[in-house]
Design a protein around this nucleic acid. Structure first.
Lengths: 231, 231
DNA sequence: ACCTGAACACCGTTCAAGT
DNA sequence: ACCTGAACACCGTTCAAGT
């Protein structure tokens, strides 16, 4: 940052140094995602982002509409990074793999994941995963209506589970024994008998196990429900 | 707002007029919730809130630690407003009623609900609903561990469903036929065959039905799962 | 076409000064 | 004990001016 040129005084026109030769929408979004990964969503500002790119804050507006469009762009970037498997002949295992792929994509960007889980986009980028899921469900014989219904139920579970997982932060972290101990003590002294009794289980959360358990139970239930209404 | 006194000039010391005779934590939080209800979470600022209370912005800091504590306070206010039914002898219908009560509380403050669904508080205020749910599950014979597990699975579904419901905004609104028509057209022209085919169902969302369907399916599945592992 | 800087109307919060 | 205002270090965004 020091001694970048012979002078420190900023100039007008084209930037004098190599840090930002060609700004572009994709460079802006990529740097924005990196910023979210490092510092969290609430730390994103146009000015800070511009600083990282070595550019005037206002230059960003040549490539994105506004800050909100940047957050939408991050969402699309993450959705596009998910690698969804093609459908096979087994619906249940297909759905499990689709859900795992979605979860994997979120966990690669835990601080950005709330954006994806919170914003509902209707761009074609954001519809691509929907297309894949619907294709899998339709191929297994579900009607379009049942497919939409099933997708929504599973997605609600995924969103709820992942919101807990990515915003839990240090609490519930697997290794942090000290945090678990103090949380457990806090729950035990809450004065609430059921909470105190269940404190050992409330103080920890095995996210992998919760995810796999809930997903399995839910998919079995949907199977049963669909079998019932098909008769 | 005009002509509040003989002079417009603000003074020091105790406020000269009746608008804010005694500020208090509960008055601050109540007004904050009203502000969120009217304008949304992102419109909350200490300055705007103070203006509504007829008070200097800095006065708020005598009653709350900071802005984040206000948002936490709103969450506790809403959680405390939920009226959870006592448990009966039927676990399934108890859980359904608990879930409905939670949903009702969220839907009374749709713009504030994301705060409740997003922040995980460990204050005793926030633990009260947990105590009630655990008591219901324990009374039905579940072990503390199974109770925590079941509560988490149901809560994940509730959070996901309600996040969709409260942040869906005008899209998916029951009455707005024009919005539905244009959304459907958009989906049909997306170029994605499954999305286009399912457009009539993707363009609408009966939140009541989705909620009841998912909840029923999930609780049945949990019942079956618990019956299985108990053998 | 793209980048820039001043300017506008905001923020949250600290701190010393009032009553 | 509580309220106040100036001040600090920030925001997002518009707009005219540069190259």
């Amino acid at each position: 940052m020091l001694n970048r040129m012979t002078t420190d005084a900023p100039r007008r026109g084209r930037p004098p140094r190599g840090s930002a030769p060609g700004l572009s929408r994709s460079r802006v979004l990529g740097e924005a995602l990196a910023l979210v990964d490092e510092e969290g969503v609430e730390e994103v500002s146009m000015r800070k982002l511009a600083r990282r790119l070595g550019v005037d804050p206002m230059s960003l507006y040549n490539h994105v509409d506004n800050k909100d469009a940047i957050l939408d762009g991050i969402t699309e970037l993450i959705l596009a990074s998910a690698e969804f498997p093609a459908s096979t002949s087994d619906l249940r295992s297909d759905m499990i793999e689709l859900a795992r792929a979605f979860r994997r994509a979120m966990l690669e960007h835990p601080r950005a994941a709330p954006l994806v889980l919170t914003r509902q986009l209707s761009s074609s980028q954001a519809l691509a995963p929907t297309e894949i899921v619907l294709a899998t469900l339709r191929r297994a014989g579900l009607s379009p209506q049942d497919a939409v219904h099933s997708m929504r139920t599973v997605l609600a579970f995924l969103i709820g589970t992942l919101m807990r997982e990515v915003s839990a932060g240090p609490t519930f972290a697997a290794g942090d024994a000290e945090a678990i101990r103090s949380r457990r003590a806090e729950l035990e002294e809450s004065g609430l008998p059921m909470v105190a009794e269940a404190a050992p289980f409330l103080a920890v959360c095995d996210h992998d196990a919760e995810f796999e358990f809930g997903l399995r139970v839910l998919l079995e239930a949907l199977d049963a429900e669909l079998a019932r209404t098909e008769i």
